[in-house]
Lab assay of single mutants.
Amino acid sequence: MTSCHIAEEHIQKVAIFGGTHGNELTGVFLVKHWLENGAEIQRTGLEVKPFITNPRAVKKCTRYIDCDLNRIFDLENLGKKMSEDLPYEVRRAQEINHLFGPKDSEDSYDIIFDLHNTTSNMGCTLILEDSRNNFLIQMFHYIKTSLAPLPCYVYLIEHPSLKYATTRSIAKYPVGIEVGPQPQGVLRADILDQMRKMIKHALDFIHHFNEGKEFPPCAIEVYKIIEKVDYPRDENGEIAAIIHPNLQDQDWKPLHPGDPMFLTLDGKTIPLGGDCTVYPVFVNEAAYYEKKEAFAKTTKLTLNAKSIRCCLH
């Protein structure tokens, strides 16, 4: 018999989150649709729960009410004593943790798909938090293969000092899905179709896995975050240069030392320094102006996964 890495157990509980950011409308629209008619997301033997994560922000069509829901799922915020004085999103995070967690427990949901849009030209993107997770690498390989020839990129946010504390991190297997470009507060049919297909293929993978299909060893190309880059700023902290036209919409493309990065209003080009080629992502993302992030630098690498098969009882 072929030796293989056996994944822990079959997958039982899956959640699909929309509206973690209330103005990213593809996930909101799909989740609302699936709450009314969820036939397309159901798979035999699998509990799939669509869920609106930040209903107040969705109602106002804004990213958040008090603070970013997708950055506060750490033990400090989840452990705060519940009171009306807490920011709305912290209270909501505790409610979500109660419903789908608790985080880092045996009772937490197996998989959470968190649906997002970006204003950046990132196409279909899967966000991975753990480079050693054979199950998710296999799932992402399946999704990428199923979507081809449509490109699907994998963004690895594993980093020693950049801690995200994402909404989906309460699950055993957290999956971020990011599709763009799409303006905030807008629905685009092409973007919706791409996100819908990503979810379909992900659920198909889980179904095949649960039925005992063995997935042979595989490898995927990923883009691992190195650092986030702020806009150049003046002495008052105001933005002093904008994304250069040569960099705009060039997510995932190589940016070499000396290539144009920013452009000042008086026409001066600010190039990339250093001696390493990087791959920019979230270029000129609207939501990241407040976070002082013009783009993120990534490096390209390959992740390998062992063969996996479900432990059938």
Rank of each mutant, 00 (worst) to 15 (best):
H5M: 13
H5V: 12
I6F: 13
I6A: 14
E8V: 10
E9I: 02
H10F: 09
I11A: 02
Q12E: 14
Q12C: 06
K13R: 12
A15S: 01
I16N: 04
G18V: 00
G18R: 04
G18K: 05
T20F: 04
H21V: 07
G22E: 10
G22H: 08
E24A: 07
E24L: 05
L25F: 08
V28D: 03
V28Y: 15
F29C: 15
F29K: 15
F29A: 15
L30Q: 02
V31R: 06
K32S: 10
W34S: 03
L35R: 09
E36G: 09
G38Y: 10
G38D: 14
A39C: 11
I41F: 01
Q42C: 10
Q42L: 08
T44G: 11
T44R: 13
G45W: 02
L46T: 07
E47D: 12
E47Q: 13
V48A: 03
K49I: 10
K49P: 06
P50D: 05
I52E: 01
N54L: 00
P55K: 11
R56Y: 12
V58M: 09
V58I: 10
V58S: 10
K59P: 05
T62M: 13
Y64R: 07
Y64L: 10
D66F: 05
C67H: 11
D68R: 07
D68A: 01
R71A: 14
F73L: 11
G79A: 13
M82S: 14
M82H: 13
E84H: 13
D85E: 13
D85T: 13
Y88I: 07
E89P: 04
V90C: 12
A93T: 08
A93K: 10
Q94E: 10
Q94F: 11
Q94M: 13
E95C: 10
N97P: 06
H98D: 14
L99C: 11
F100K: 03
F100S: 04
P102A: 10
D104A: 13
E106N: 13
E106M: 13
Y109R: 03
Y109P: 07
D110T: 01
I111V: 15
I111A: 01
I112D: 05
F113S: 02
F113Q: 03
D114M: 00
D114R: 03
L115D: 03
H116P: 06
H116V: 06
N117A: 02
T118L: 07
N121Q: 02
N121E: 03
N121C: 08
M122I: 15
C124E: 05
C124Q: 02
C124P: 10
L128V: 00
E129W: 07
N133C: 11
N133F: 02
N134E: 15
N134R: 03
F135W: 03
F135K: 00
I137P: 04
I137S: 05
F140W: 04
F140D: 04
F140T: 01
F140Y: 12
Y142V: 03
K144M: 15
K144F: 00
T145E: 14
S146H: 15
S146W: 08
L147E: 05
P149F: 00
L150H: 12
C152V: 15
V154R: 04
V154F: 02
V154G: 04
Y155T: 15
Y155L: 15
L156R: 03
I157R: 15
H159I: 07
H159E: 15
H159Y: 08
S161Q: 13
S161Y: 10
L162I: 13
L162H: 15
K163I: 08
K163E: 14
Y164H: 15
Y164L: 14
T166I: 07
T167W: 09
I170V: 14
K172R: 12
K172G: 05
Y173I: 13
P174S: 15
P174V: 14
V175M: 00
V175Q: 04
G176P: 12
G176C: 15
I177Q: 05
I177W: 05
E178A: 15
Q184P: 12
G185C: 06
V186Q: 12
V186G: 03
L187Y: 00
L187T: 07
D190W: 06
I191W: 05
L192P: 03
Q194T: 08
Q194R: 14
R196E: 03
K197A: 13
K197V: 10
K200Y: 09
K200D: 06
K200W: 07
K200A: 10
H201S: 10
H201V: 07
A202H: 03
L203M: 09
F205R: 04
F205Q: 04
H207L: 11
F209Q: 02
N210S: 06
G212H: 06
G212R: 02
E214N: 08
E214V: 13
F215P: 05
P216T: 05
P217Q: 08
P217V: 02
P217W: 00
C218V: 10
A219C: 12
I220H: 03
V222T: 07
Y223E: 06
K224C: 00
I225H: 15
K228T: 12
K228L: 09
V229G: 05
D230G: 09
R233L: 14
R233V: 14
D234K: 09
D234T: 09
D234W: 03
D234L: 08
D234Q: 08
G237N: 09
G237C: 00
E238Q: 12
I239A: 07
I239E: 01
I239M: 08
A240C: 15
A241L: 00
H244S: 04
N246H: 11
Q250F: 02
W252R: 07
K253E: 08
D259V: 04
P260W: 03
F262T: 04
L263S: 06
D266V: 00
D266F: 01
G267Q: 07
G267M: 06
K268D: 10
P271D: 08
G274M: 02
D275A: 09
C276G: 10
T277Y: 03
Y279I: 02
Y279G: 05
P280Q: 04
P280W: 03
F282T: 02
V283I: 15
V283K: 05
V283L: 10
N284L: 01
E285T: 10
E285V: 01
A286P: 10
A287L: 09
A287R: 15
Y289V: 14
E290I: 08
K291G: 12
K291F: 07
K291R: 14
E293T: 14
E293N: 10
A294S: 01
A294Y: 02
F295L: 06
K297H: 05
K297C: 11
K297Q: 06
K300Q: 07
K300N: 01
L303M: 01
N304M: 12
A305C: 07
K306M: 11
K306N: 12
S307C: 08
S307P: 11
S307M: 09
R309D: 00
R309Y: 06
R309E: 01
C310E: 03
C311W: 11
